[in-house]
Design a protein around this nucleic acid. Structure first.
Lengths: 148, 148
DNA sequence: CTACATGCAAAGAGTTTGCATCCGC
DNA sequence: GCGGATGCAAACTCTTTGCATGTAG
């Protein structure tokens, strides 16, 4: 289904008349490898590991570029950061474990009933499409709590 | 029910051994008058209108102080800002109209079923307690859309 | 009068921008 | 070779911090 993931975005960039630079490829790869939940800073760090010759400003500019042409999307998390992830995934939301930092995706179907009720009861048309829900994952909630 | 709202926080501040300064009162008033959804910058602007002699750093420090002693709470919104609001309200979430900026509160009861399903299906214990949901309010969604 | 709170200015983080250079096409 | 993309450094925004002064209790 998305086996051609590596070449497809390249084609899109070219098709729209933009240039396919090594930086853009590395940054796109970094976002893809991060599996959702990556901040500009994390992208920068990942890219640095491959090639130290990429500038921070380029990371910001390129993420914005990839967002504009629709290859990545953004979500906003509670600790006041923007995260980027690959576009084109089925609608989903994130569960973030505050203890082990693990990120799980949940289907949008779980959330849709909430949006439906908001629309029915308030007449409010929801645009928010990406929740970051924080808490404890099944594993970590079983651990003994540290004393207060 | 909350008719004594003005004096009660004063008492709390004094009781805990902190000083009741004009700045703290003005900043607390500003948060209360903003009815949820106020950023440090908005608080600063409100306070400035009453007395131009309040410093930005004091606003930050005081909001943090009010948070620590439990008089206000924070939520984090999608445009990457922290907002403050009076503590002690019943659990609720915000609907924010992206057109007219109006903020509506919805009861947590609407959201609880979602959290319940997440817990049942994923074993994930939700801690997030404050959603900011963006979209169009009943009024604004009826307006003709501007051409793209 | 004493210690906590404030004002001021400077320092930090994170992000954006102007401009010369580079390089994809 | 041309024009868009990058690197670099400076600017900008938002927030925090150190220190001297002010003031609530």
């Amino acid at each position: 289904m998305q086996s051609n993931f590596t070449t497809e975005p390249r084609a899109l960039i070219r098709r729209k008349g933009y240039r396919l630079t090594p930086q853009r490829q590395m940054i796109l790869d970094a976002v893809r490898e991060a599996q959702g939940h990556c901040t500009p800073d994390e992208v920068f760090a990942r890219v640095q590991r491959k090639s130290s010759a990429v500038n921070r400003a380029t990371v910001y500019r390129t993420l914005d570029f990839l967002l504009r042409i629709g290859l990545v999307t953004t979500a906003h998390v509670q600790n006041n950061q923007v995260i980027y992830e690959m576009a084109g995934q089925s609608p989903h939301h994130h569960l973030v474990c505050q203890h082990c930092q693990k990120v799980t995706q949940i289907s949008h179907e779980l959330v849709q009933p909430l949006f439906d009720r908001i629309e029915q009861e308030q007449g409010f048309e929801v645009h928010t499409d990406h929740f970051m829900i924080f808490g404890l994952c099944a594993h970590c909630r079983q651990l003994p709590k540290p004393a207060d």
